[in-house]
Amino acid sequence: MTLIRNVAFVLVFYGLSVPIVLLAPLSALFGRRALIGYATGWARFHRWCARWLLGIRARYDGPRPAGQVFFAAKHQSMFETLDLIVEMDSPAVIMRREFARIPVWGWAAQRYGIILVDRAASSKALRALMREAKKAKESGRSVLLFPEGTRVRPGEQPPLKSGFAGLYKMLDLPVAPIATDIGRLWPKGGLKCAGVATFRFGEPIPPGLPRAEIEARVHAAINVLDRNPG
């Protein structure tokens, strides 16, 4: 059954995502707000496919942040990169620059408000990241970052990337940490399994804290559900 579910998900989600992405430029003709709505609709489609084809659904608990915030989330799968767009009311998401090279999707993602970051983390790249994040804040949007920098397996807890502290200082917004155990069901390699994944909001962390303190608090908060299955 697990194999059948995975095959069905690939055929339906990826099969229908091709025309959905190719039609994205049409929604852009009606402005960024229309494109954001279109992208959120695609993310809802992904949620539907995960729920009804894979048997995976998300449970969100913990104190929901109000207003404009800086989300810092654990990253264990593709699932949260799309589901958090739905759940968090379309924040500007910080993602690796490589995604911009995907034909059409990369173009549409940048107009949605994806903020691209260079893995090399040069001073020039970091300045560009700060500029784009500042624009997102000034537009009234929240910002979502996966501060460990890459997708990890359950049990892995790498340190936060250096860019997190700079963004925290520049944005001057409360931080809403988000922990998850989705990696149990949606592994980095192998078949996805049915079940309920938990996404847990930690207590909001105020702006203005020293770097060592904010990094320690966020790292602890996004890893509260993490455990090594081995």
Results as ranks from 00 to 15, higher is better:
residue 144 L to Q: 06
residue 144 L to N: 06
residue 157 Q to S: 12
residue 156 E to R: 06
residue 133 A to E: 09
residue 140 G to L: 11
residue 155 G to N: 05
residue 138 E to H: 14
residue 136 A to Y: 04
residue 140 G to E: 08
residue 155 G to W: 03
residue 148 E to I: 08
residue 164 F to G: 01
residue 152 V to K: 07
residue 137 K to F: 09
residue 136 A to E: 09
residue 143 V to Q: 08
residue 162 S to Q: 14
residue 152 V to T: 13
residue 156 E to T: 02
residue 143 V to F: 10
residue 154 P to M: 01
residue 161 K to D: 10
residue 155 G to P: 10
residue 149 G to H: 02
residue 134 K to L: 15
residue 157 Q to R: 15
residue 157 Q to I: 08
residue 146 F to P: 08
residue 155 G to L: 03
residue 156 E to V: 08
residue 137 K to V: 10
residue 142 S to T: 12
residue 160 L to Q: 00
residue 158 P to F: 08
residue 134 K to N: 13
residue 160 L to Y: 01
residue 136 A to G: 13
residue 159 P to V: 10
residue 133 A to T: 10
residue 150 T to M: 03
residue 142 S to I: 08
residue 164 F to D: 00
residue 158 P to S: 05
residue 158 P to D: 03
residue 132 E to C: 05
residue 144 L to V: 10
residue 154 P to F: 04
residue 156 E to A: 09
residue 146 F to T: 07
residue 150 T to I: 03
residue 138 E to M: 05
residue 137 K to R: 13
residue 134 K to E: 15
residue 145 L to K: 07
residue 160 L to W: 01
residue 158 P to L: 04
residue 160 L to S: 01
residue 151 R to P: 04
residue 158 P to T: 08
residue 161 K to G: 12
residue 134 K to V: 15
residue 137 K to H: 10
residue 142 S to M: 04
residue 137 K to Y: 09
residue 147 P to Y: 04
residue 156 E to K: 04
residue 162 S to V: 14
residue 132 E to G: 11
residue 138 E to S: 10
residue 163 G to T: 13
residue 149 G to A: 03
residue 148 E to N: 08
residue 151 R to L: 06
residue 141 R to L: 14
residue 137 K to M: 11
residue 147 P to F: 02
residue 150 T to Q: 00
residue 146 F to H: 05
residue 149 G to T: 02
residue 140 G to Y: 13
residue 134 K to Y: 13
residue 145 L to H: 08
residue 142 S to A: 12
residue 136 A to H: 01
residue 143 V to P: 05
residue 152 V to C: 10
residue 142 S to Y: 05
residue 165 A to N: 03
residue 144 L to D: 02
residue 155 G to A: 01
residue 154 P to Y: 02
residue 136 A to F: 02
residue 150 T to E: 01
residue 139 S to Y: 12
residue 138 E to W: 07
residue 148 E to Y: 04
residue 158 P to G: 02
residue 165 A to M: 00
residue 155 G to E: 02
residue 150 T to A: 09
residue 165 A to H: 06
residue 162 S to H: 11
residue 149 G to W: 02
residue 161 K to L: 11
residue 153 R to H: 11
residue 151 R to K: 02
residue 151 R to A: 12
residue 133 A to Q: 03
residue 148 E to S: 10
residue 160 L to G: 00
residue 160 L to K: 00
residue 160 L to P: 00
residue 152 V to F: 00
residue 152 V to S: 06
residue 138 E to Q: 14
residue 137 K to T: 05
residue 148 E to P: 02
residue 136 A to L: 05
residue 147 P to L: 04
residue 144 L to A: 01
residue 134 K to A: 15
residue 144 L to E: 03
residue 144 L to C: 00
residue 142 S to W: 05
residue 162 S to E: 14
residue 157 Q to T: 15
residue 165 A to P: 09
residue 151 R to F: 07
residue 137 K to G: 04
residue 145 L to P: 06
residue 155 G to T: 03
residue 163 G to S: 15
residue 159 P to M: 06
residue 132 E to K: 13
residue 144 L to Y: 06
residue 139 S to A: 15
residue 151 R to C: 12
residue 152 V to Q: 08
residue 132 E to D: 14
residue 155 G to Q: 06
residue 134 K to P: 12
residue 140 G to K: 11
residue 137 K to C: 05
residue 160 L to C: 00
residue 152 V to M: 04
residue 143 V to S: 00
